[in-house]
């Protein structure tokens, strides 16, 4: 039973991938795929990039949530509440004003840079806290996010960019076409690198003292992992926008079921993360077809409900 769990979950996600390839405006002419090369267009230009983006972004955001939770030793931290996403959003706005026609790569670099700065600011504030209670850390993150968000809104209002900003950040996968998603493979690569340092992350999660006692270079491991988180979130924010709660609920659910031995749980986090993202996006395409509801909007509701269930049902956990 236990040995079968992973293959079954994997099959379920593959099923979702197929469903994602088959769903949407404009039917894929499945019957003509063998004979007619033009029949591949819908698949290759829109469906395939979109599906790949869903899988990679869902995976990367979930894993970066996991990393942040381990490193800050707090269950309730996620990229959006650790300064990265709000800072990346500000970066996207700034480059949008300064150089509207900038190539995607430049936008991405700017967003990643802002995202690193945001995360650094968050950690700097955490270091100044003498009382590192579980209550305080997510709260600080949310407040920091609100302050950064206020700056972003202020700038956007002044330059009359609020409308475009909301559109950019809505977690909308329908805008993903060939030529715009390929950088997400880089995000996938960064996520794979996390797997390599999984054991070190587990030890860092036991705290500085234990890590040093076991002879681990605490600072460099921490730094490396945080750079990955910041870069991943910078890129994902540029390509698809924000995916609220994903980085929070996926690692928490997996932790409840499988514990926190990171090397063992990362595959599960990846599967569940991409599964949920795929599900939300497919649902968004179906509910109001032919209109689309962004996956981010559905995730906000779905994620909040799941998180509340976890939070209120498990009184000892956290």
């Amino acid at each position: 039973m236990k040995a079968l769990a992973f293959p079954v979950a994997l099959l379920a996600v593959i099923g979702l991938v197929v469903a994602s390839l088959a769903t949407g405006a404009g039917a894929v002419p499945w019957g003509r795929l063998w004979s007619d090369p033009a029949a591949w267009d819908v698949l290759l230009i829109s469906r395939w990039p979109r599906t790949v983006a869903l899988v990679l972004a869902g995976m990367a955001v979930s894993v970066s949530g996991l990393i942040l939770q381990v490193l800050t030793r707090n269950r309730f931290v996620e990229p959006a509440t650790a300064g990265t996403v709000p800072a990346a959003s500000l970066g996207i706005l700034v480059i949008g004003i300064a150089w509207p026609a900038a190539p995607v790569v430049v936008k991405m670099l700017v967003a990643a840079g802002f995202s690193i700065a945001g995360l650094a600011l968050f950690l700097l504030i955490l270091r100044r806290l003498s009382l590192r209670s579980a209550l305080l850390i997510p709260l600080v993150g949310i407040m920091l996010g609100a302050v950064l968000g206020a700056i972003t809104t202020f700038v956007a209002v002044r330059y009359e960019m609020l409308q475009s900003l909301i559109a950019w950040l809505s977690g909308d996968f329908s805008v993903i076409l060939r030529g715009r998603y390929e950088v997400l493979w880089l995000v996938g690569l960064l996520t794979a690198m996390v797997y390599l340092i999984a054991n070190r992350l587990s030890i860092v999660g036991l705290g500085r003292d234990v890590a040093i006692t076991l002879g681990l270079n605490y600072r460099s491991t921490m730094l490396f992992a945080l750079m990955i988180v910041a870069m991943v979130n910078g890129v994902v924010t540029v390509v698809v926008g924000t995916l609220p709660f994903l980085g929070l609920i996926v690692p928490n659910l997996i932790s409840l079921m499988k514990g926190d031995h990171i090397r063992r749980t990362i595959p599960w986090v990846c599967l569940l993360g991409s599964g949920i993202t795929l599900l939300c996006d497919i649902a968004g395409r179906v509910i109001r077809a032919p209109y689309e509801i962004p996956a981010g909007a559905l995730l906000g509701v779905f994620g909040a409900v799941v998180f509340l269930l976890v939070l209120l049902r498990e009184p000892r956990h956290g």
């Binding site: 609220p244 509701v301 909040a304 209120l312």
Partner: peptide
Amino acid sequence: RLLLAGLVFGILFRSAAEL
């Protein structure tokens, strides 16, 4: 727990409204 539940309810309401 109360604080987080409250925060998350807030986000839930906002997301539901957005949806």
